[in-house]
Amino acid sequence: DIVRNLLTGLQWTLLLSLVAFIGGGLIGLLVMTLRISSKAFPRNVARTYIELFEGTPLLMQLFLVFFGIALLGVDISPWLAAAIALTLFT
């Protein structure tokens, strides 16, 4: 029973990691494009995003996404909240 639960957890962990890796790569590409822009506004947006996500702990970001979206009246699954938070963090 314990091994089955561990294998189920491993499956979800790998899937969540894959989603965060792909989503983080796409967001990272967007932030990189903003960061190397010749205009000041996109560079400032990228700098703010980087400082926000580097300056706060991942656990706090996970809580803010899950409970913050719920405060807006949107019912969000824990898996989706984790995927969004990990993607933004990555």
Rank of each mutant, 00 (worst) to 15 (best):
V3A: 07
E51G: 14
L30P: 08
T8V: 12
L88G: 04
I50P: 10
E54P: 00
P57Q: 04
I69P: 13
L62E: 05
G73L: 01
E54Y: 08
N44W: 15
A20I: 07
I84C: 10
T90A: 12
R35T: 13
F67A: 11
W12S: 13
F67E: 06
T90E: 05
A85N: 00
A20M: 04
Q11R: 10
A85Y: 06
T87S: 02
A70P: 00
L71Q: 09
G24Y: 02
I27P: 09
I50D: 13
A85E: 14
F41R: 05
L6P: 05
V65Y: 00
S17Y: 12
L14E: 04
D75L: 12
F53S: 05
T13V: 11
D75C: 11
L6A: 11
T56N: 04
G28E: 03
L10K: 07
L10P: 04
D75E: 07
K39T: 09
F67N: 05
P78T: 11
I84M: 13
F21P: 03
W79I: 15
W12G: 02
G23N: 06
V45T: 10
T87I: 02
I84T: 14
M32W: 14
F66C: 02
W79H: 02
A46L: 04
L72W: 13
K39Y: 13
I69S: 11
M32H: 15
S77A: 03
I2S: 14
W12L: 08
I50R: 12
N5P: 08
K39I: 10
A82I: 00
T33N: 07
I2G: 15
A81Q: 03
V3E: 14
G55R: 10
L88T: 03
V65D: 08
T33D: 04
A20Q: 04
Q11M: 07
L62Y: 01
G9D: 09
L14Y: 06
L72D: 01
L80Y: 14
F66H: 13
P78G: 14
T13D: 00
S77N: 12
A81N: 01
G28T: 03
G25T: 10
T87E: 01
G9E: 01
T87N: 01
S38V: 07
I50Y: 12
S37Q: 11
L80V: 11
